[in-house]
Structures are given as C-alpha cells and as structure tokens.
Amino acid sequence: MLEARLQTGALLKKVLEAIKELITDANFDCSDNGIALQAMDNSHVALVALLLRHDGFEPYRCDRSLALGVNLVSLSKVLRCAGNDDIITLKADDTADVLSLTFENTDNDRISEYELKLMDIDSEHLGIPDTTYEAVVQMSSAEFARICKDLQVLSDSVQIDVTKEGVKFGAKGELGSGAVTLKQNGNVDKEEEATLIELQQNVSLNFSLKYLVNFTKATPLASRVSLSMSSEVPLLVEYKMEAGYIRYYLAPKIGE
C-alpha cells in the first residue's frame, strides 16, 4: 500500500497544473523511491517525466510498487478542494482501484476526505537515452515564460540559438518578426535572474511555441529553469524542486 503525506499540499496542486493540459491520463508509479510519472502527449511530440522523491513526504510508505492510473483533470478538480496551506495525504491499497486524499488545514480542525476512482492505463515507458548536451542554458523561469508568451504573438515556432555570448529566441511570422537575446551574465547581483550557459558547441534549433508555453505552467514550481539542447535531438526543459523534478522533452522541428 501507499501512504504519502505532503506538508505543503500546494506543491501537488502546482504539479497538476503543470501537467494536466499536456496529458489527460497517466500512471503515478509509486515505489520506495517516491512517486514518478512518465507520459507523452497525444500527438507524441512532447513527454513529461515527473519525480516526487520519497524524502519530500513525511511519512512516506510504499511496501510494494503500485501504478495508480489517474485521470489528471479529475485529480486536479479534487485538488482544487484543498486549501493552499493544507497538508495532503495520499493513500492507496494494493488493489489500486481508488486513491484516497485527505486534506488537513494547519489548525488541524478541518479535515476533508475524497476518493478518486482509478483506471487501468496501458502505458509504455519510453527509454530516454543519456545525452551529453551541446548547450545547457540556465535562466529565470519567469523570464523563459515571458519570452515564450511574447514570441507566440508572432509565430507558432521559435528558433533558439545558443552561443557563448548568450541565447537568442527568435520568431518570424506573417505580421513580422521578433527576437529576445539574453546575454550570459553570471555576475549579476540577483542570482535567480542570471543567465548561465554551458557550451560544447553552438546550437540552433526550432521548436513549437505552443508546447513551450504549455511547459511554462511549471513556472510556480521553481524560480530557475534549464534548457538542454543538442542538434537534432529533443529539447529538455527541467524545473527542479526541493525533492524532485519535472522534466519536459520536446521533439524539434527539422528543416528539409
């Protein structure tokens, strides 16, 4: 059985907000290690990999590995019934036909209990090859969200060019073109806003902005984001949390 108690229930609410538009149904794979999820969007262009490590919960118990098949829209609706400061406890027995959720307020004088029906989901896990990326950009997650949203005004696609001087996001469309360049600035006072680049080789890649904008729904989970890129391989967009991560992979657009 699974029992996982999360002091900051708001974290789970934010995680669901970050994935529910990209994927509809997914298995939460529960093991000793924690709660993981890997799922592709319906068009097989993007993939979400989530890990909530066991040490983010107190207590965390999972005697046997369990796959909890969840409709993410339903789960996010139930989680909206939890207060932002509530402690959330997840429980499931080995039959895994329902997920029990308990929300306790901080004064511990209001306890709400919900049960969500689970489903059998036939999901195949994809093997993600270990990749040494040619360029890794670490930047403010809010800045990344703003750039994606701004450039969506111009085009469906963004071209990302990384050199040792900086990273340039450019878009061209019917109404014109636009570009935002962030210079590498490791010395700025505010560490959270710094743009840092690790570069083996310059890269220039095209991606769908619709997906990138979708990924930025994870912005409330982390102040920083990293973009890992190599020529003609999927982009990795990672938001690190205190006890885990949310990673998005996006297949590139490749010219003829």
Partner: peptide, 14 residues
C-alpha cells in the same frame, strides 16, 4: 518550413 518530428523517432519504447 521546418517539420515537427515525433518524439518516437528519438525515444524507443522500453
């Protein structure tokens, strides 16, 4: 214009 690739051409089912 560049064409959207499928993720399945990079990541294979386990």
């Amino acid at each position: 214009a560049p064409v959207q690739k499928s993720l399945l051409s990079f990541f294979k089912p386990k």
